[in-house]
């Protein structure tokens, strides 16, 4: 097991290294970070430009820039930002905000996927099944941003109709934040409801299809038939033999979708104007802020990779047939 984890991690490091190098080159090639400065009227003095160029390490060869970035990471130095903020200082709180959203959305999506998938499988070809299937297709075809705006508008309408703030539609927390533990928690909870719903709704449809089809398959399996032949009650067979076995592969599916979820989070956060990873990324890209973009990509890809590893380990623990290797 340990050997497997080590091997997986070692295999991953080159992937992240190569990936980060390629993105570094791409981001560097995507434009001159000093473009805005150069375009300024009246022109900025060449001395300032040169100083800025030096601060952003643009006077170094590309390979050296990359090397300094890479070695800097291990010293906790994320590199200079165009906007002169400390990237490390800026990104961690934002990561927390986004991960909070993604984790809650994954949980909600899993719950939805299970309920919908199992009911559809057990009542295969009934009207419930058709209803869930149609709803699934609709959500699968719905752009997250459109759904988000739609829900946001509904929430605003409800707020206006009731004359009180039932739903928070802007930001990830109130500004300024309330004091005290419980007020903070409830404030955050109030802000997170709508984005979580959007992200979960646009994610769960393929998962519930997966649950449905693997439940259908498992229900026709020989071992479920044998379990029934033992005289076990239907519900026991369903939960213990069918559901448990059908769910194991779902861990892989969820892990594979994690990168997609972060994409969805970027969009959702944009609509609800959160100060999370989404706006961090978008403004960094817009400013051609190389090191900010790199920090974003590195953090998210490491999370994705680690989560995939955890999913694989979990799979092996749940299904003893899988020999890690």
């Amino acid at each position: 097991m340990l050997a497997y984890v080590l091997r997986r991690l070692l295999h991953t490091i080159p992937i992240i290294l190569v990936g980060s190098f390629i993105t570094f080159v791409m981001v560097s090639a995507s434009g001159d970070p000093l473009g805005d400065l150069l375009a300024k009227q009246p022109p900025v003095s060449p001395a300032i430009l040169a100083a800025e160029r030096h601060r952003l390490r643009l006077d170094l060869p590309l390979l050296e820039q990359y090397w300094r970035w890479l070695t800097g990471i291990f010293r906790g130095d994320w590199g200079p930002s165009v906007t002169r903020v400390d990237i490390g200082h800026e990104i961690w709180p934002r990561l927390l905000v986004s991960v909070r959203l993604v984790v809650l959305a994954v949980l909600l999506a899993l719950l939805l996927a299970l309920v919908v998938g199992v009911i559809s499988a057990v009542r295969q070809y009934s009207w419930v099944d058709y209803l869930f299937t149609s709803a699934g297709f609709l959500l699968l075809s719905m752009p997250a941003f459109w759904l988000a705006i739609l829900l946001k508008q509904q929430a605003i309408d409800v707020n206006e109709a009731t004359g009180s703030t039932l739903f928070y539609t802007v930001g990830d927390a109130s500004i300024p934040p309330p004091t005290g533990f419980w007020p903070t928690v409830s404030d955050i909870a109030g802000h997170i409801v709508l984005p979580t719903i959007v992200l979960a709704l646009t994610t769960f449809a393929p998962w519930s299809r997966f649950v449905r089809s693997s439940m259908v398959e498992v229900q026709q399996s020989d071992y479920v038939r044998l379990a029934r032949a033992k005289g076990l009650p239907r519900r026991t067979v369903l939960v213990r033999h069918a559901l448990r076995t059908a769910l194991i592969p779902l861990t892989t599916v969820v892990a594979m979708d994690l990168a997609v979820l972060f994409s969805g989070a970027v969009i959702t956060e944009t609509v609800f104007q959160w100060r999370g990873m989404g706006s961090f990324l978008l403004s960094a890209v817009r400013d051609k802020d190389i090191y900010a973009v790199m920090a974003w990509l590195l953090l998210v890809s490491v999370i994705v990779v680690l989560f995939n590893l955890v999913a694989d380990l979990l799979y092996a623990v749940l299904d003893r047939r899988i020999r890690l290797g």
Partner: peptide, 11 residues
């Protein structure tokens, strides 16, 4: 049943 390889739950 016929197929012993698939009659038992693998997990």
């Amino acid at each position: 049943f016929q197929d012993p390889l698939s009659s038992l739950n693998p997990v």
